[in-house]
Nucleic acid binder design. Structure first.
Lengths: 248, 248
DNA sequence: ACAAATATTGCATAAACTTGCAATATTTGC
DNA sequence: GCAAATATTGCAAGTTTATGCAATATTTGT
C-alpha cells in the first residue's frame, strides 16, 4: 500500500462524509493508527483537510466560517462600517452586496432605524433578521458557495426592476484609473446590476484594497459616489480619488 | 463523534434558531450535558457565540440575554427526516418549504448526494451551504421574520416557472377531510404555488399535527402523495389517510 | 423564598497523542 | 549494482485530552 494511495482513500472519505475517524481509516487500510496519524498530519500541512483530535474534518465543512477569515482587519472594518451606517436614514431603500465589510455594516445598523434592505447575501440576510424595524428583501437565485451571494440571471433580473436610494458595494479592488475590479466574472455581473439599480453608490473598503486591481472591471471611479476607508479623508493615499469621489 | 463536529452542529443551531438549549444539544448529539457545556465554553472563548445560562445565543442577539424555553420534539422530527431523506436520489430537483422538520431534513441530507434544492427558507439555505454537492437556489422575496421564509408575489412568480421532482411541504395541520391547513394567509399562497411546482408532494409531519385544522386551506388530501410521520405506517391514527396517500 | 434547573469543581478512566527508537523499505550517488 | 542515505512503518512509554459522574453551589421561574 503506497502512501499516496492511503492519502487518496482518506481524502475520499473526507469528501464523502466531511470527516474521518483515525481509527476507522486504520481499520480499513490495515495499517497502524500511527501511520494514519502521520498521513493526516501531512494532508493537514498540505491544506487538504483539517486535522482534529480523533481524526480529520473537511476544510469546507463550515463554509460560514468565512466570517472568521481576515479577522485581523476586523477593527478597520468596524471603523468603516460605523462611518457607513451614519449615511443611513429612516425610510431609505438600501442595497447591500456581499462581503465581510458589508456584513459588518449590517451588524452595526441600529435596530431603531426603519429601512428596507435588498441583498443577495445569505450571511447579511441572517445578520439583519433579528432587527425588527428592517424589512429584508432577499434577491434570490443560485447561491455561489464561496461568496455566499446569489449570482446569475435571476438576481440581475430582480435588480433591473429596482431603484434603491443607496448601495453599499463591497469590492475586491479599486484603482484611480482602472476603476473598481473583481476576480469573479459572475459576481461582476451582479455588482454592475447593483450600481444601475441605485441612486447613490458607496464603496466601503479597507485601505489595502485601494490602488489594487483585478481581472474584471465593475465600473469606473466616476460611478462611485462615496468611498469610505478607515483612513482620514485627507490622507495622501486617497488624493487620486478626491476629485471624483466624496471621501468619508 | 469528533469535537469539531459537535462545534459545527452547535454553531449551526445557533445560526438558525439564534439560540440553543444545552439540554437539546446533549440530546441531539447523544453526549452528556457536561460535554456540551465545555463545547459551548470553548466556542464562547473563540467568540463564536455567547454562552448564557441554559445554553447559548447568537452573538447578534446580545440584547436578549436569555434563552426561551421552547419545547420542540426534535427526536420525532429526526425520525421523520430520516425517512424523508431516503426518498432522495441523485440528480433530483427538490423543493423545500420552511419549518423545523424540513430544516431537520436538510440537515440530514447526505453530503455526497448530488441534488438541486430550491427553497424560500433562510435557515434551510444556510443549513445546506456546507454540503458541497448540493446546488442551492434561493427563492427570493420579502422575508417574513417569524417563519424566516420569503413570501409574496416574488417567490410565487419564481415557483410558477418551476417543475421540481419532489416537494417537502412543511405544514401546520392536516386533516382527513379538511385537508392541509395553515394559519398565515401569505404562507398559504406560497405553499399553494409550491404544490403546483412539483411532480410529487411529500408532507413530513409529527403526529400531533395529524387531524388538526387551521384557518386557511392549502390543499386537499388528494394533492399529497406521501405522508411521513414518526409513527408506523399501519398505526390506526393514520387509517383515514391510507386510502389516498402513501404512508411512510 | 423555594423548588427545580443549571453550573462548577474535582476526579476517574479511557482514548488519543507525542516522542524516540528500531526494523524494513526505498531512493540516491557513484 | 551496491552501499549509504533517507523514508516509512510499527511499537512502547509517558503525556495530554476528552468525557462522564458526583457532590456542591448558583441561577431561575413562579
Amino acid at each position: 500500500m503506497l502512501k499516496e494511495e492511503r492519502h487518496q482513500v482518506i481524502l475520499n472519505e473526507v469528501r464523502i462524509h466531511n470527516k474521518v475517524l483515525l481509527a476507522d481509516i486504520a481499520e480499513i487500510l490495515k495499517v497502524s493508527p500511527d501511520t494514519v496519524r502521520r498521513d493526516i498530519k501531512e494532508l493537514h500541512d498540505d491544506n487538504k483537510l483539517k486535522r482534529v483530535h480523533g481524526g480529520a474534518i473537511s476544510l469546507g465543512f463550515n463554509h460560514y466560517s468565512y466570517v472568521n477569515r481576515e479577522i485581523y482587519s476586523l477593527e478597520k472594518k468596524s471603523q468603516i462600517a460605523e462611518k457607513a451606517v451614519s449615511l443611513l436614514k429612516d425610510g431609505q431603500v438600501v442595497l447591500l452586496s456581499g462581503g465581510t465589510t458589508n456584513l459588518e455594516i449590517s451588524r452595526l445598523i441600529p435596530p431603531h432605524l426603519k429601512i428596507t434592505c435588498f441583498t443577495p447575501s445569505l450571511p447579511i440576510a441572517v445578520q439583519l433578521l433579528p432587527k425588527p424595524n428592517i424589512d429584508i428583501i432577499f434577491i434570490g437565485g443560485k447561491i455561489n458557495k464561496d461568496s455566499q451571494i446569489t449570482i446569475g440571471g435571476s438576481p440581475i433580473g430582480v435588480l433591473s426592476e429596482l431603484k434603491a436610494d443607496i448601495c453599499f458595494l463591497g469590492v475586491n479592488s479599486i484603482h484611480p484609473t482602472d476603476g473598481v475590479t473583481e476576480f469573479d466574472w459572475e459576481i461582476v455581473q451582479v455588482k454592475k446590476a447593483m450600481i444601475k439599480a441605485s441612486k447613490k453608490v458607496v464603496v466601503p473598503s479597507i485601505s489595502e484594497k485601494i490602488n489594487s486591481g483585478q481581472r474584471y472591471k465593475i465600473c469606473d471611479i466616476d460611478a462611485v459616489d462615496y468611498l469610505i476607508t478607515e483612513l482620514d479623508a485627507n490622507n495622501p493615499v486617497l488624493k487620486p480619488y478626491g476629485k471624483k469621489i466624496d471621501l468619508i
